[in-house]
Write a protein that binds this DNA or RNA. Structure first.
Lengths: 338, 338
DNA sequence: CTGAAAGCGCTTACAG
DNA sequence: CTGAAAGCGCTTACAG
């Protein structure tokens, strides 16, 4: 840097005080600067390619136009990079610069990151979760906080989560609408918020079609393709299922595999629906997988906008926004055989 | 924020000047402060939970301990999030906060981002590319710049790229070592740096094994599974290939599909090797794909470290670091049939 | 050993 | 309409 041009240089060249330069360049309405002076100032500024030092401005204004995104290693997981992209887009459009850190969910790291960003005088925080969950926020983030893909136990801040229940309902409805009545559900092994809500959505759909819930149709798969493959095979053999709703697309890929091994074809013998619409998984499956899209971009956008509102003092109440999840139809659903 | 505690509050409570507080808290060696005074200062600081305002410090020191990562929409692509993770890890360990923006490679956006970060007085830039390429950097980034997964035409800054050529050579050698002699190469449709280098690596391996290069064995696939599927089928039928080296894992998935349609099994009838080691693609393929890993984490780490060195004035010459690419053996390679 | 002063580069009442 | 002054919260020679 070294020879940076400051407001003083502009003032000198325009033959005015630096106060006047500031007033002109910031378009301060109540300051009635003569047109001629303003003109000279602008000319000088542009000739010198003057750009205000944001540190000095921030120090003086007590406002930095920066935000921090704390994430649960989110930035390193393919699924959620859309959320980050959305935040950045909104930030840019609002003249905000964004700090990003990933804490791996470690409370110690979170704490120190929050402290560091506070010292850096950020205007607000987005706390982004790797997957839909109920979180305990690190202390001391202040009041300009928005939770993304998660929510706090008590609604202290705006939060946005996907409509897992509605999405699951849509997925299972798609199967029911094709005539399936024996529908298996391979749920997540972990008792997550999403697992719980997707089960509820599964039952919702069944109920609406007057199909009785049969607990033998729901099964929990451990991580890894093999567990899902086994689950799918069992569900077909033991529970006589003609369709499968899978907790996510990766589970669905496992299910494909289990079915194929039994000599069963998707969707001719068994229909399959996934969840997430994960790129290179759902679309690369053979046949391409019908699934439910997680609205990552929309959630990120909503969160960033909510934060901007808060920062500008126009923040509403601490709403938990539930973002709809669209069904994406591809080629893994057909009417039941026979 | 509002009632933040400043150095003045600490000074008041400790009964010293703010200069002394600063000296003590920064452990300034040449300042000989009495042990008793230092003790009082530290006590006061900790009682008040004082944390220095980094804006003020930055303004004064002309050094902010922040860096900016400009990316080519890198952060929104699954492949490269490892690079970002690595940068953040190194940054954190060095007390650096990181700004992140993705410019979608738009020169206009890049320019304004660079300007904004300059105004924010960042200490340096990482210019991160989506894929290995030769780039024109936006003007005015100054001297503390490192290029990640790309390099400039002239070596002005440290840069780190993957060893595409060596990786390709390793991939094809794996095939040759299993006894294959007719080896097809489905290369990228676009004339990228990577496409060029991987072709060179392919030829290197052939040469080492005394296998003559046959141009009918190399083919270019457009984006999308179908084009790769066709290419694979053609290569097997027309060129009598028993093994396939694919530009990347996604192409390999397409190849699997084309082979399967011909009633050909991987690896019993045709062996396949990919490139990238893309999560959920290479490992989820059936059979799991032998491939070459792109060293994203290592590259990100190297870039961040090089930037730290530069910032600290210990930067060496503008080296282009070529990072080795490891072969990852899975289940898609076998000896040729018969 | 410690304090007063200047200054980093801005913005914002306050005078005039 | 415009300038001098104070102040945001630090750090760093400089005195003493």
């Amino acid at each position: 840097m070294g020879q940076t041009v400051t407001i003083k240089d502009v003032a000198l060249r325009a033959g005015v005080s630096s106060a006047t330069v500031s007033l002109v360049l910031n378009n301060v309405a109540r300051a009635r600067v003569s047109v001629a002076t303003a003109e000279r100032v602008r000319a000088a500024a542009s000739e010198l390619a003057y750009a205000p030092n944001l540190l000095a401005r921030g120090l003086r204004r007590q406002r930095t136009n920066t935000i921090a995104v704390l994430s649960d290693e989110i930035a390193t997981t393919p699924l959620a990079s859309q959320m980050i992209g959305a935040i950045q887009d909104v930030a840019m459009r609002n003249g905000l610069l964004v700090f990003m850190v990933n804490t791996n969910g470690d409370p110690e790291t979170e704490r120190s990151a929050v402290a560091a960003f506070h010292q850096q005088q950020v205007d607000g925080f987005v706390y982004a979760c790797l997957y839909h969950r109920v979180v305990d926020l690190p202390p001391g983030m202040g009041t300009n906080v928005v939770v993304l893909d998660g929510r706090t136990r008590r609604p202290r801040f705006p939060a946005v989560v996907p409509d897992d229940r509605g999405g699951a309902r849509a997925a299972v409805t798609e199967l029911l609408a094709h005539g399936h009545r024996r529908i298996g559900f391979i749920n997540d092994y972990y008792a997550t918020v999403a697992a719980d809500l997707r089960l509820k959505g599964y039952r919702d759909a069944l109920r609406e079609f007057g199909v009785r819930f049969d607990r033998r149709c729901v099964v929990y798969a451990e991580p890894g393709l093999e567990s899902s493959a086994d689950a799918a095979a069992r569900l077909h053999e033991d529970a006589g299922v003609t369709a499968l709703f899978c907790f996510n697309d990766r589970v669905a890929v496992g299910a494909y595999r289990g079915l194929t091994r039994q000599g069963l074809a998707v969707p001719d013998d068994v229909s399959v629906v996934g969840f997430d619409d994960q790129e290179f998984v759902a679309d690369y499956a053979d046949p391409p997988l019908t699934t439910v899209a997680l609205p990552h971009y929309a959630m990120g956008q909503w969160a960033a906008r909510a934060l901007v509102e808060r920062i500008n003092g126009r923040g509403g109440p601490a709403e938990v926004r539930v973002m709809p999840c669209q069904l994406v139809r591809r080629a893994s659903v057909a009417r039941p055989a026979g």
